[in-house]
Nucleic acid binder design. Structure first.
Lengths: 118, 118
DNA sequence: TCTAAGTGCTTCGAAAAAAGAATCAGATCC
DNA sequence: GGATCTGATTCTTTTTTCGAAGCACTTAGA
């Protein structure tokens, strides 16, 4: 399970296009979430795990390795994990998704109202 | 494997926050890619499959169901699949990722040059 | 009508990834 | 010493994905 890297073929794409590598990296479970949770500041392994709804520690370890290899996350001397500058950029790139998810929630609530009276 | 829906607990989050549902939806393999490929116009099932590096048809079907339930994708009367308005918004929200992936590629190339001469 | 090729879609066994709990070693505190 | 944190590993089970094969249907041609 190699870490996706631009310039080389990745899961689901043989072109090596950076975007495809990014889609592979962030298409892995918990990747987006970890970036999201680290954005507010460095966290220790267990604290991060708790922030991520007590995700499996084995997977967390794997994702941290992936993201560190991808230079998105780094481990500080005090062993906490934090976003690199590149990681913060990734967060900013992902930020419009928050806005979208709110619109999405509104649209879904409109489409199928959750058993409200009217 | 229920489709993530804002307002209800999803894989990896019990809060029902829209963002967490979105992270679950797009954290599934191929979800991001499908939105990406459909952005240029409607595609039939097999054409879409080919665009997605011949991804497994069983997973494509599952993802299309997920995305359709989430009102991100819809099937036209001629059986082609297309983004809904909400889907196009999602694409726009994801677009900064392209920019980032280029920066990312540049940073990685800088960090570990791929065995170039000098 | 038979055949061939193209759809959208389904099924199923195998492989890969994730879940989840137990555990280890080191540090800290009492 | 004993309890309790920590980061990290290992192992087994469950879930997800893969990937090939096949089905039902449509179109086109002989």
């Amino acid at each position: 399970m190699p870490t996706p890297t631009p310039g080389r073929p990745v899961r689901g794409s043989s072109t090596g296009r950076p975007l495809m590598a990014a889609l592979d990296l962030f298409g892995r479970r918990w990747s987006l979430r970890i970036v999201w949770e680290l954005q507010r500041g460095p966290l220790g392994f267990r604290a991060l795990q708790q922030r991520c709804d007590n995700m499996s520690s084995s997977v967390l370890r794997q994702r941290l390795t992936d993201l560190a290899t991808a230079l998105v996350v780094e481990q500080h001397p005090d062993t906490t994990y934090a976003l690199t500058p590149l990681g913060h950029d990734a967060y900013r790139a992902l930020r419009p998704l928050v806005r979208w998810s709110d619109d999405w929630a509104a649209a879904l609530a409109d489409e199928k109202p959750t058993s409200q009276h009217g």
